Amino acid sequence: MRGITITYSFDGNEAEWQATIRTFIEAINADPEAAGKFTYQVAVADDGKSRVHWGRWDSAETLANVQSQPYFQAFAPKVKQFAGETLTTTGHDITLKSSGW
């Protein structure tokens, strides 16, 4: 399983940010090629400004499918806009995972 961690600082319009995240996650869940194969979580740190996104997928094909969708092509530039110069991304292999949610 592969993954990405995205971190940045954001102190803009919270309603717009939340709507953008919600729309993306709902689109993933509605995509029959991605549902259950691509997961996405987002957190706001205790400081209220630091944001962390975690994406995980089961295969290169699943990732390619998600990246080719209009919902991804709308989402990725918005995250870059929200993050400005603070955006960092780290790709990684998931080697151990607990069971549960």
Rank of each mutant, 00 (worst) to 15 (best):
A30H: 08
K97G: 08
D93G: 10
G100N: 00
S50W: 06
A76K: 13
W54E: 12
Y40M: 13
G48Y: 00
F72E: 00
G84H: 11
A30D: 03
T62Q: 04
G3P: 01
S59F: 06
A19I: 06
G48N: 00
F38H: 13
I25F: 01
A35E: 10
P32T: 05
Q67M: 15
T89V: 10
D58Y: 07
Y40I: 05
T86C: 04
E61P: 10
S68V: 10
Y71D: 01
F75R: 01
I6N: 03
A19H: 12
T90H: 01
V42K: 07
A30T: 04
I94R: 04
E16V: 14
N13C: 12
Y71N: 05
H53G: 11
A74I: 04
A27L: 09
P77C: 00
V66P: 02
V44T: 12
V42I: 09
G55A: 15
A35G: 04
W17R: 15
S9C: 07
A43R: 04
A64M: 12
A43E: 13
E14T: 11
T95Y: 14
K37N: 14
T39C: 08
Q81D: 12
I4A: 07
G55F: 03
V44I: 03
Y40C: 12
T62M: 02
W101I: 14
A43I: 13
S50Q: 04
G3D: 06
T95F: 15
A60C: 05
F82Y: 11
G55S: 12
W57K: 10
E16Y: 07
